[in-house]
Simulated assay, not measured.
Amino acid sequence: MKKEGFSYTFDSSACASCGGRCCTGESGYIYVNKSEIEDISNFLNINTKDFVKKYLYREGFKYSIKERKVGDSYECIFYDATTNGCRVYEARPIQCRTFPFWDYFKTRIDELQLECPGVILGSDDD
Score class of each variant (00 low, 15 high):
V70F: 08
V70L: 03
A81R: 15
L56E: 00
E38T: 12
E59V: 14
F61E: 15
L56P: 11
K66H: 03
G25M: 06
I30P: 06
A81Q: 15
D50Q: 15
N45C: 09
K62N: 07
E67H: 02
S64D: 09
N47A: 14
N45V: 11
I37G: 11
K49S: 12
F51C: 05
S35T: 10
V32N: 04
I77T: 11
Y29W: 06
N33S: 09
F78E: 07
Y63E: 02
C86I: 05
R21F: 06
T24N: 00
Y57E: 09
I40E: 10
N84W: 01
I40M: 06
R58I: 08
Y63L: 01
T82I: 09
G85I: 06
F78P: 06
K69W: 13
S73D: 13
L56I: 01
K49F: 07
V70P: 10
R21Y: 01
V70G: 07
N45A: 09
F43W: 11
I30Y: 04
E38S: 08
K53Q: 08
E59F: 04
K53W: 08
F61A: 06
E38C: 08
Y57S: 09
T82A: 11
R21E: 07
Y57H: 12
T48S: 13
G19F: 02
C23S: 05
N45D: 14
I40G: 03
D80H: 10
G19L: 00
I30Q: 06
C22S: 00
S27D: 14
G71F: 11
D39L: 14
Y63S: 01
T82S: 15
E26I: 09
R68A: 03
K53G: 04
T24Q: 13
S35M: 15
K62P: 11
V70S: 03
E67M: 07
N47G: 06
F61L: 13
F51G: 12
E38P: 14
F43P: 04
V52A: 03
R68N: 01
I40H: 09
D80G: 05
Y79Q: 13
